[in-house]
């Protein structure tokens, strides 16, 4: 695994309906981290969601690294207690190696998994990976 690099994302808190109907930039990884929150791995226009009270902020608190699925699953079998999604693409989040980790399983044909780790835990994540 390469060291995770800081991601330049956009974080949006808005009503669930506004997030459901948002037109996200094409090709961007969109992680729906909560009913009222999305993390988009790309710059996003302020008016991307219809909610006038939405909070749309650049987000640099996360680091990410793409890992081949085989390597990822071997690591997760050791370090993740919860059941991983089987469909693709898929988003999942929870404790991995005792750290708060978000996982993006790419669409079929792209056998990679994006590990998204809060930057304050990256040193621990790299240590625990090895």
């Amino acid at each position: 695994m390469h060291a995770p690099e800081r991601l330049h994302c956009t974080r949006i808190v808005a009503t669930p309906t506004a997030l459901d109907t948002a037109a996200w930039p094409g090709g961007a990884v969109v992680l729906r981290v909560a009913a009222d929150e999305a993390l988009v791995a790309a710059p996003v226009e302020l008016d991307v969601v219809s909610d006038p009270h939405a909070i749309v902020e650049p987000e640099t608190a996360f680091c990410g690294v793409w890992v081949e699925v085989e390597e990822a699953l071997a690591f997760l079998e050791r370090e993740c207690d919860w059941e991983l999604p089987t469909e693709r693409p898929a988003f999942a989040q929870g404790a991995v190696a005792g750290l708060p980790v978000k996982l993006w399983f790419a669409a079929d044909g792209d056998d990679r998994v994006l590990f998204v780790v809060p930057a304050p835990f990256v040193v621990d994540f790299v240590e625990r990976w090895s």
């Binding site: 808190v13 009222d36 608190a61 809060p118």
Partner: peptide, 11 residues
């Protein structure tokens, strides 16, 4: 209440 909340402690 109709509010949005974003914790930006780490951000």
């Amino acid at each position: 209440l109709d509010v949005r909340v974003m914790n930006q402690t780490m951000s």
